Amino acid sequence: MSETRRGGSDRGFLLHAEPWRETSLLVDAWTRAHGRLWLVAKGAKRPHSALRSVLLPFQPLHLRWSGKGERLTLTGAEWLGGMPLLSGEALWCGYYLNELILRLAPREVPHPEWFGAYETAVRALASGEPVAPVLRAFEWASLQATGHAPQWPETGPVAVPLSAEAYAAITQGAWSAPIVAREVKPWLRALIDHCLEGRPLRTRAFMKEWVTNGKG
Rank of each mutant, 00 (worst) to 15 (best):
L91F: 14
E154N: 14
A177C: 00
P84A: 12
L201E: 08
E22P: 07
G214C: 06
M83D: 00
E139N: 03
Y95A: 05
G173F: 10
E3A: 14
A141G: 02
P150Y: 05
W152H: 12
V122I: 15
W210H: 15
Y95R: 09
W114Q: 10
K208E: 15
L85C: 10
F13W: 15
H194K: 05
R204K: 14
T120V: 10
P153L: 01
R189T: 09
E209M: 01
W20D: 11
T23C: 03
M207G: 06
A141K: 01
R107A: 13
W140G: 03
P60G: 11
T4F: 07
K185M: 01
P153G: 02
N213C: 10
M207D: 02
A121N: 11
F58P: 01
F138D: 04
R189H: 11
E89N: 12
M1H: 08
H16F: 08
A77T: 09
L51Y: 06
G116Q: 04
Q172K: 13
L25I: 10
S87M: 04
R6D: 03
W175S: 03
A41I: 10
P161C: 04
A181H: 04
A205Q: 13
A205C: 04
G173P: 01
V131P: 02
L61I: 08
W187T: 00
K208H: 11
R5V: 08
L196K: 06
W187P: 00
G81I: 11
S176Q: 14
T120D: 14
A117C: 02
T4P: 03
H111G: 00
T31Q: 10
G216A: 15
A124W: 01
L26M: 12
L25Q: 14
G82E: 11
D28T: 15
N98P: 07
P130I: 11
Y95Q: 11
G81A: 04
S142P: 02
G35D: 01
S49Q: 06
G35S: 08
W152P: 03
R71K: 13
S163M: 05
L14T: 09
E139G: 10
P157T: 00
T31H: 10
P133D: 03
Y96E: 14
F58S: 02
A41R: 03
L72P: 11
P200T: 05
A145D: 01
V54W: 06
L74V: 09
L37M: 14
S66A: 15
T4R: 14
Y95P: 00
D10G: 11
D193H: 11
P153V: 02
R123C: 06
I179C: 05
R204Q: 11
V134I: 15
E165V: 05
G69S: 03
P84M: 12
R21H: 13
G82L: 08
